[in-house]
Structure formats: C-alpha cells, structure tokens
C-alpha cells in the first residue's frame, strides 16, 4: 500500500507542469524515503531527477517499494483538476495497476477522486555520481528564466562563463549577438542558512532579498560551457517552485540546474553540453 498526502497540492501541480513537456512517460519510485523520479527526454540530452521526501508529506505510508509508470501528460491533466489550495492524496495498491488522486478543498466539503491507469515503462536509469563541481552559481530563478528567454530570441545556444566575480551568458545568431553579465553580489547579501539533513542534500531557507540579482558564486576553477537554450527554457518552467536556482558546472560535464522544493526536496535537471569539434 502506498499513500501520500500533500497539504499544499499546488506543489505537486507545479512539479508536473515543470517536467511534463520534457519527459513523456516516467517511472515514479515510491519508497520509505519518498516519492522520486528519474527520467531522460527522448533524445537523451537532458534528465530530470525529482525527490519529494516522505517527511515533507502530511501523511506518508509505503509498505513496500512500488514503481508507478505514468504518462506525465495524463497525470498533469488529472492534477489540473485539483485547485491550488486543495490537499492531494495519491494512493496505490502494491499490485494494482491504477493510481488514485484524491483532491480535498480547504473546507473539506468537496472531495474528488480520479483514477489513472498505470503503465509498464521500460526505462534506463543513469548512475549519477556525487561530484564536486568547479563552479556553483545561485541566483534569482526569475532572473535566470528571463535571461534564457531573452537570449533564445537571438540564438539557439548559450555559453555560460563563470569566474570568481561574475557569470556571463553569451549567445549569437543570424541577427547578431548578446552578452549578459551578472556580477556576484557581495557576501552576505544572499541570506540563507543551511541545515544538513540526514539524507540527500541540504535544506536551504532563503529569505527574500529586496533588490538586485542576488548572485552567489562558489568557484574552484573558472568554467565555460555551451548549452542548448531550448532545454534550459524548458527547465525554467520550474521557476515558480523556488525563488532561487542553483547551477552547477564543471568542465565537460552536464550542468545541474536545481530548484529546491521547500521542506520537501528538489527538482534537478541535467543537461549535456555542446562540445566544439
């Protein structure tokens, strides 16, 4: 038996909206740790890794590990039927072939349940090693979205160059070229406290800062990499999940674009770089 209840149903709705255009079908892994997913886009250039920890749910029960194969477009259709302030409960039997989504409004006087057929999905799982990245950039997720959107009207790819003091986004196309440089904000402007949690990752609380780009750079080595803007723009659909985005880059490695989901986990996107021949 798997049962997971999330008070803030809008989180699940936003997560689905952020990944449904990138990945068609995916296996959700339900374990005692939480509700997780790893899936690549059809061209195997990008990957999404989602983790919603069991501790972040209002109620969570998972008697044994269950894999639920879902078509994300269909899942999104069902979740769109939930209001933003609804509580959402997902339920599945161990051997069942359906998942039930139950929506409850705040007054608890409207209760809906939707059953969706599960699918058998043959997917490849990638082993992603823990890596020390050469550059880590934290910036406003809105600003990152804005930059990716603006540059994609000029060119198809973006070159991201991170130095100690700035991160520079460059593109060029038929009509010309564009450079956007965001300077690192002085230390302490990015107010946050990190609390190490027992499993995977860290919990970061950010307090809203009043102005500026709030760019925080942690650099071992300057890095310059080029990526297809189409994918980055797709990742930016997760912008509403978190005020900040974290980019991790290392020479000749896929970039990791992470949005934290408050008190629950994260959605991470990996994108393979373009390499000059």
């Amino acid at each position: 038996m798997f049962e997971a209840r999330i008070l803030q149903g809008s989180i699940l709705k936003k997560v689905l909206e952020s990944i449904k255009d990138l990945v068609t079908d995916a296996n959700f892994e339900c374990t005692a740790n939480g509700f997780a997913l790893q899936a690549m886009d059809s061209s195997h250039v990008s990957l999404v890794a989602l983790m919603l920890r069991s501790t972040g749910f209002d109620h969570y029960r998972c008697d044994r590990d269950v894999t639920m194969g879902m078509n994300l477009l269909n899942m999104s259709k069902m979740l769109k039927c939930a209001d933003n302030d609804d509580t959402i409960t997902m339920k599945a039997d161990d051997a069942g072939d359906v998942v039930t989504f139950m929506f409850e409004n705040p007054k608890a006087d409207k209760i809906s349940d939707f059953q969706m057929k599960l699918m058998d999905i043959d997917t490849e799982h990638l082993g992603i090693p823990d890596t020390e990245y050469e550059a880590t950039v934290k910036m406003s997720s809105n600003e990152f979205q804005r930059i990716c959107r603006d540059l994609s009207s000029i060119g198809d790819t973006v070159t991201i160059a991170v130095t100690k003091d700035s991160v520079k986004f460059t593109t060029s196309g038929d009509i010309g070229e564009a450079n956007i440089t965001c300077r690192r904000t002085s230390d302490g402007d990015m107010k946050e406290e990190k609390v190490k949690t027992e499993e995977d990752g860290e919990k970061v609380h950010n307090t809203k800062s009043s102005e500026g780009q709030n760019v925080d750079i942690d650099l071992q080595e300057p890095v310059t990499l080029t990526f297809a803007l189409r994918y980055l723009n797709s990742f930016c659909k997760a912008t509403s999940l978190c005020e900040n985005v974290r980019l991790q880059l290392s020479k000749e490695l896929p970039v990791v674009v992470q949005y934290l989901i408050e008190d629950m986990g994260y959605v991470r996107f990996y994108l393979a770089p373009k390499i000059e021949e």
């Binding site: 061209s43 195997h44 250039v45 990957l47 082993g127 070159t159 080029t226 393979a272 373009k274 390499i275």
Partner: peptide, 14 residues
C-alpha cells in the same frame, strides 16, 4: 555552436 553530447557519454546506465 558545437556538437550536442548525450548524457550517456557522461553517466553510465545502471
């Protein structure tokens, strides 16, 4: 702008 790599050239399948 260069040749697009796939993730499989960086990460192995498990």
């Amino acid at each position: 702008g260069g040749r697009q790599k796939t993730l499989k050239s960086f990460f192995s399948t498990t």
